[in-house]
């Protein structure tokens, strides 16, 4: 089978698995049953519809949204409050299921796999960055970064612990926070916390990074540094989808998706809808 069209750096044809170069080749692949297919599209959404019931009334949070995201793209999703951004992010993160339409992530038809497989897909191929960082207050910076690795194995420490630690250290180095390794989240600034969150999202070598307002809780200077980091990660081949109100962040995205009242009103790769 052919390698990824748009990102030759990510190709590891011998193993039949994709991997980010930026995080090094030493880290062993997290086990999963889902075999990656080498596709040119990281996300393929077709007619996604999500309907909520509120007090007996149907609310269409998403209404027939279709778009495609190529591997290695930087995508911004914009829209006013209530336009369906978070609902779309929930669907893209395999945290919710669409009522109608199809969604393919990393070559997998999300609607066709069960909850367990969705959890594995989320764990192994999707990274999350939250507006409020979502760091565990009881864990150190290093432990927070290594946290997703904990869910890939059983309760007892395995022989992967050392490589997991090394991987977390490598990522902290990558986000320039190695010196904060043993600090607790409350000892960090907002920007530092978001960098830790980004490092954490990269632990399992995701194919897709979903960020929900990553600069929302930061001042403009710190926000810019986060934008730069995201750009850097994207340059290294990571597909990034950012939900944002930040015009600067939306502007740097090569692909912009606009939502209004649950409908896609603009997809910069297509003509105006």
């Amino acid at each position: 089978m052919a390698c990824v069209v748009f990102d030759a750096k990510r190709c590891d044809a011998g193993a039949g698995r994709t991997r980010l170069k930026l995080v090094g080749e030493n880290f062993p692949a997290v086990s999963n049953d889902i075999k990656m297919e080498t596709l040119s599209f990281a996300v393929e959404a077709d007619g996604l519809t999500r309907i909520y019931k509120r007090g007996g009334e149907e609310v269409r949070a998403l209404d027939g949204v279709s778009f495609r995201v190529r591997d290695g793209e930087f995508v911004s999703i914009v829209g006013a409050s209530g336009s369906g951004k978070t609902t779309l992010l929930n669907l893209l993160g395999c945290m919710d299921a669409a009522d109608r339409g199809t969604l393919r992530l990393a070559g997998h038809e999300v609607g066709a796999i069960n909850e367990r497989a969705r959890t594995r897909l989320r764990r192994d191929h999707i990274g999350f960055v939250f507006q409020h960082f979502g760091l565990m207050p009881t864990l150190t910076v290093h432990e927070n970064v290594a946290l997703p690795g904990l869910f890939g194995r059983r309760i007892w420490p395995s022989r992967h612990q050392k490589s997991l630690d090394a991987r977390a250290d490598e990522l902290l180095e990558r986000v320039s926070l190695a010196h904060r390794r043993n600090h607790r989240p409350h000892e960090l600034s907002g920007g530092e916390m978001q960098r830790v969150a980004i490092a954490r999202s990269l632990l399992n070598t995701p194919r897709l990074l979903l960020a929900d307002e990553p600069t929302g809780d930061l001042d403009s200077a710190t926000g810019e540094s986060i934008i730069e980091l995201l750009q850097e990660l994207n340059r290294d081949g990571l597909t990034i989808l950012v939900v944002t109100h930040n015009t600067a962040l939306a502007a740097i995205a090569e692909h912009q998706i606009s939502l209004r009242d649950g409908r896609l009103i603009q997809d910069s790769t297509d003509q105006m809808l």
């Binding site: 909850e115 939250f130 979502g134 946290l147 997703p148 869910f151």
Partner: peptide
């Protein structure tokens, strides 16, 4: 609640959250 949900979002399965609380 939100912290546990965040762990689920990071890839923790339902049984793993159950195991953590039981532990």
């Amino acid at each position: 609640r939100s912290e546990l949900a965040m762990m689920r979002a990071l890839g923790a399965s339902g049984p793993q959250i159950f195991a953590l609380l039981t532990l």
